[in-house]
Design a protein around this nucleic acid. Structure first.
Lengths: 206, 206
DNA sequence: CGTGGCTTTGACCAAAAGGTCAAAAGGATT
DNA sequence: AATCCTTTTGACCTTTTGGTCAAAGCCACG
């Protein structure tokens, strides 16, 4: 299970690993793991296939590398949820950050979406340990706020799920959103943000 | 682009097409189109590969067959949204039906999710015509209710998106939900429904 | 400017994949 | 039971795919 070459050494390695990661992100996020081919990734990275496999030992290694790199970034907004902040403001900020990630990093969102929809075979353990622990902890913080009557009551775990689903929807189902809104509304994000702020404000105001 | 054999004739055909559809639903919903193989589907349907290809001319034909069969079922709950009903009750009922579909037909939900996340190459047109038209129509109904002050204001299109994302999340991201909630909570749906009823009630009560 | 390690490549392989076909087997109808 | 149509299959073909390898090219440093 050794993954090799996780840390770039020379500047050529740095450059090529970055190109491969970038290309792999595009390809994997569009076709899922099994639907993607090494050739495709190599072509997008403008490397020959053997050259690509010089940097990563296998297709799976590239995928795992992406996933583990991303996991941290992905959880950062939730980590930033501050016990000592204003409850509603903290939750709205978290929601806004997640929405921004959907807008600015839709491929990353879709990479995760593909992985999870397909049963998360490669990150299930991560979800059951790191993710669960973080969510449990933040859910407790939110429950505390509710106990103090500073925001209205609602199941904290499902509250977090709802932030995930509502924000990631705009990245993962982007095509559908655009199909429904039509070409005269090319950027749904301003309305989405306004809508979500209203939603969470109304729901959480005591 | 002819798809052949859409309607079963003999009872053997009926049986085998049903078995193929069932197997294909499982496989496609788990691996996406490109990640699925005809062998896999044939094996699950307990047919030989050539035998399967006697009923459908190609892998793509099976996929298209599933997708178009499902599309109707999928939109039924939204079609049922009644202009003359009680606004909040109508929206809650729609939400509940969608949630029930996530619980009872998670594979169907994931089949769509896979297709959309990967850019909806095979149903984009459907989305831009049928789906858009239906959504626009129902959004107008909801906007009407808001104009009459019977429910609180919020962007109707994004309201519909939020019902989709919140309910489908429990089917599409099922693995994640279970990983976070842990094994002692094997059925998240009762809490999910309670949470979503609260959410939409608070948001839409004037 | 030459040497040693890093990088790149063309040629190649075995396995997997989508799909074809002719012939055999099975079913229903007379 | 003879016949005709439907169904099933084994063998086969081509393309794609993940991955290997030895040899060639390149680069930095002494």
């Amino acid at each position: 299970m050794a993954m090799d070459k996780p840390v770039p050494r020379t500047r050529i390695q740095k450059k090529n690993i970055a190109r491969i990661s970038e290309a792999a992100l595009s390809v994997f996020s569009t076709y899922g793991f099994r639907g993607s081919t090494v050739d495709q990734i190599a072509k997008q990275a403008k490397l020959s296939k053997p050259n690509l496999l010089y940097y990563f030992p296998s297709k799976e290694a590239i995928h795992t590398h992406l996933l583990s790199t991303l996991m941290d970034t992905w959880l950062d907004p939730l980590r930033a949820l501050d016990d000592n902040g204003d409850p509603l403001e903290e939750i709205l900020t978290y929601m806004r950050r997640k929405l921004q990630m959907s807008r600015d990093h839709p491929r990353e969102s879709r990479l995760f979406a593909n992985e999870i929809v397909q049963g998360a075979p490669r990150i299930l353990t991560l979800l059951e340990t790191d993710l669960k622990q973080l969510v449990d902890q933040k859910a407790a913080v939110i429950a505390g706020w509710m106990d103090q009557g500073r925001i209205a009551r609602a199941d904290p775990h499902h509250l977090i799920f709802s932030i995930w689903s509502l924000t990631q929807h705009y990245a993962d189902f982007d095509v559908q959103v655009h199909a429904v809104l039509g070409p005269e509304k090319p950027d749904p994000y301003p309305e989405a943000e306004a809508y979500l702020v209203t939603l969470f404000t109304r729901m959480l105001t005591p």
